[in-house]
Design a protein around this nucleic acid. Sequence first.
DNA 1: TCGAAACTTCGAAGTTGCAAGTATAACAGT
DNA 2: ACTGTTATACTTGCAACTTCGAAGTTTCGA
Lengths: 142, 142
Amino acid sequence: MDRAAMLEAFNSIVTVHDARSLRESLSSREQEQVETTVTELFDLLGKAHAMEILSLFAFADKPLRFSEIESALEIVANTLSVRLQEFVAAGLLSRTKYDEVPPRVEYRPTPKAEALFPVFGYVHIWAIEHELDASKDGENTH
Amino acid sequence: MDRAAMLEAFNSIVTVHDARSLRESLSSREQEQVETTVTELFDLLGKAHAMEILSLFAFADKPLRFSEIESALEIVANTLSVRLQEFVAAGLLSRTKYDEVPPRVEYRPTPKAEALFPVFGYVHIWAIEHELDASKDGENTH
DNA sequence: TCGAAACTTCGAAGTTGCAAGTATAACAGT
DNA sequence: ACTGTTATACTTGCAACTTCGAAGTTTCGA
């Protein structure tokens, strides 16, 4: 499957329209819950480096240590520390501490986080076809 | 197609593995470009309310005005103003100003932004199956 | 003069970055 | 035996940047 086929498949299967009609089939109580969850997720992912971190896990296929993440991405320790705590609190990462010297701590994505990974795969594929720039067609006046 | 089938289809078609092998088929120059674009996108989407705004466009299916976005989401005017300018500069939204009284400005997603919309659809579907909370299985020690 | 829309502007509050420090225990040198 | 170094996974303190909240600006027709 080449990239065009992949984008096409992705697009045809999970359109916003599908998502909307699926959401509308829920009770209003469930709809509220979904809205809340989406908002919370966006709040979490909307913080500095949050998506870079999850994306790293998505492509890593193995548990990662604090120092591995720190050196793979350009994040200072305090921010990384806070982000990891938030992910653990949200149930997206699990933290395992090994009582060795020097200490070793491993973070690994939970199934809940893994269910989000296709998003990161898709974003990479999107980036093969697109760029972000101060480009054409920005402003019009009528 | 029900929600389980949709999640399954999405997962099987755009796995991180697919994305990685596709990326590895590129020249190193192209790979760098992809990395840069992904980083820029994450920087953009990682700012306050950025994903809420794009998600609103994804589900709206029509151009949106400044005041519509402002009242649909809890964003103060100055932040919204900056976010919209950034999206226009990035080529994700186009801005059309109608010289009427009172003035009217419409923002509409470009094809480049529309190509990202499946992500927002998927996130909503994910949110039907998952919640974010201070839950179980956070911390272990060995 | 008022109203409506799409913004700015300003100062306070919150978040992130940068640099340095902490705890632990093994290990190397003198 | 004692001192100093190394390594990891963090904290801490402060400066710089971002976002919020509220108020102000512009335009022009009613």
